[in-house]
C-alpha cells in the first residue's frame, strides 16, 4: 500500500539547508504554539504537534536527516511514496499496536507509517530521549454481573515482541539478513497468564497488571497492561450507584392490596421478601446489603421496584369476583381530579 510522503522541512517551515540550530528554534517555536497541553480540546493542534515532533525527530538527528535527504528532492508532501526494493530490512511490523491508557499517555508521539517505513519501528535508533520504558497497553475485559459479584479469572494471551535471540536484535547474522527474524531484529512470542478480577469490581474500572505491557528499549522495564472492565447488562438486575442492584418485581393486584411474601432473586440467591399490604405500583422496596459486593468489603443494596401486572385472560370466576369488587368498592383512584 502506498504511503503519503511527508515533507519534514515544510512541516517545520525551514529551508532544506537549515542548520541544526535553525531546526531546533523552529521546532521549539511550533511546539510552544501547538503543544496539546496548551491547546485544550484542539484536535487539529494535537495532530499538527505530532507532525512537528516527527519532523523534529528526523531533522534534529544528523543520521536520520541524512537518510531522509537521500530520498531526494523530487517528492512533495502528500505524494504516494513506495519504498524502494531492498530496503526491506527497515520494515518492522509491530505486534500489537499500543495505546496509552485512557487516551492520556505520557507523550503524543505516535509516528506515521511514512516514518516507520524509512526508519523502522521506534525501537533501536536514537529514539526518544525521554522514554525508553515500554508502552502501556490498554485492553478491555467483559464480565457478567455474577462474575463482578464473586470475582473472576481470565486467561490473557498477548503477543510480546522480544529481541531476536539469534541475532541479538541487530537483524543481521554473519553479514546476512538474520534468518530467524527476517531482519526485523525481534520475534513475537505469545505470553499467557491469568488475571484475577477481584470481587466487587465496578463497571468502567481499570485493572492494572504491572510489567505486562510493551517491551522497553535499552534494557528498560516493560510498560503496564490495563484492562477496562465492562459489566455486561444483566437480564434481571440493573446496576445503579456502582454497587446497588435494581430489579422489577411483578405483583398481582391482590398481592399488592393484601400484602404477600414473595421469592425475590438476588445476587446471593433467592430470598423471601414481605410485600406490605396496600403497596403501590412503582414503589421501591430496599433489601439492605443484598446488592453487588463492594471491593472495600460489604455489599450494596438491592432495590425492588413493584410492578402491578394483571391477568390478560381472566377466568370466568375471576371476572365475576372482580365485577363484584367493582360494584362494592368505594375506592376512587382519581379522587381530586375535576
Amino acid at each position: 500500500m502506498p504511503i503519503k510522503f511527508r515533507d519534514y522541512y515544510e512541516t517545520l517551515g525551514v529551508a532544506r539547508n537549515a542548520d541544526q540550530d535553525e531546526v531546533k528554534r523552529a521546532y521549539r517555536k511550533l511546539a510552544r504554539k501547538l503543544h496539546p497541553d496548551v491547546n485544550p480540546g484542539n484536535k487539529v493542534a494535537e495532530e499538527h504537534f505530532k507532525e512537528i515532533n516527527e519532523a523534529n525527530e528526523v531533522l534534529s538527528d544528523p543520521e536520520k536527516r541524512r537518510r531522509y535527504d537521500e530520498l531526494g528532492t523530487a517528492w512533495k508532501a502528500g505524494m504516494d511514496y513506495t519504498p524502494p526494493p531492498g530496503g526491506a530490512e527497515d520494515f518492522r511490523t509491530q505486534a500489537g499496536r499500543t495505546r496509552q491508557p485512557f487516551g492520556a499517555g505520557d507523550q503524543f508521539g505516535s509516528f506515521s507509517d511514512f516514518f516507520e517505513t524509512i526508519f523502522g519501528g521506534r525501537r533501536g535508533g536514537a529514539g526518544f530521549e525521554f522514554s525508553s520504558r515500554g508502552a502501556d497497553v490498554e485492553s478491555e475485559v467483559s464480565i457478567t454481573l455474577e462474575e463482578a459479584h464473586r470475582g473472576a479469572k481470565r486467561v490473557v494471551r498477548i503477543p510480546v515482541e522480544e529481541i531476536c535471540p539469534a541475532c541479538g536484535g541487530s537483524g543481521t547474522k554473519d553479514g546476512k539478513t538474520c534468518p530467524a527474524c527476517q531482519g526485523t531484529g525481534s520475534e513475537t512470542r505469545v505470553e499467557s497468564f491469568t488475571v484475577n478480577i477481584p470481587r466487587g469490581v465496578q463497571d468502567e474500572s481499570v485493572i492494572r497488571v504491572p510489567g505486562k505491557g510493551g517491551a522497553g528499549s535499552g534494557g528498560a522495564s516493560r510498560g503496564d497492561l490495563y484492562f477496562r472492565v465492562h459489566i455486561q447488562p444483566d437480564g434481571l438486575f440493573r446496576l445503579r450507584n456502582g454497587s446497588d442492584t435494581e430489579l422489577d418485581l411483578p405483583l398481582a393486584p391482590w398481592e399488592a392490596i393484601l400484602g404477600s411474601t414473595v421469592k425475590v432473586p438476588t445476587l446471593d440467591g433467592p430470598l423471601e421478601m414481605r410485600v406490605p399490604p396496600g403497596s403501590q405500583g412503582g414503589q421501591m422496596l430496599r433489601l439492605r446489603g443484598k446488592g453487588l459486593a463492594k471491593q472495600a468489603g460489604g455489599q450494596g443494596d438491592q432495590y425492588v421496584r413493584l410492578k402491578i401486572v394483571v391477568p390478560t385472560k381472566p377466568t370466568e370466576k375471576e371476572t365475576e369476583l372482580l365485577k363484584e369488587i367493582a360494584a362494592e368498592s368505594g375506592f376512587e383512584p382519581r379522587k381530586g381530579w375535576n
Binding site: V155, V190, E191, S192, F193, T194, V195, N196, I197, P198, V201, Q202, E204, S205, V206, I207, R208, V209, P210, K212, V229, G242, Q295
Partner: peptide
C-alpha cells in the same frame, strides 16, 4: 508458555481515591 497468576494491584473508577 508460562502461566503465572497476577493479582491486581490497584483498580479505580472515576470516584475512587
Amino acid at each position: 508458555m508460562d502461566d503465572a497468576h497476577y493479582e491486581v494491584i490497584f483498580w479505580q473508577t472515576e470516584h475512587s481515591r
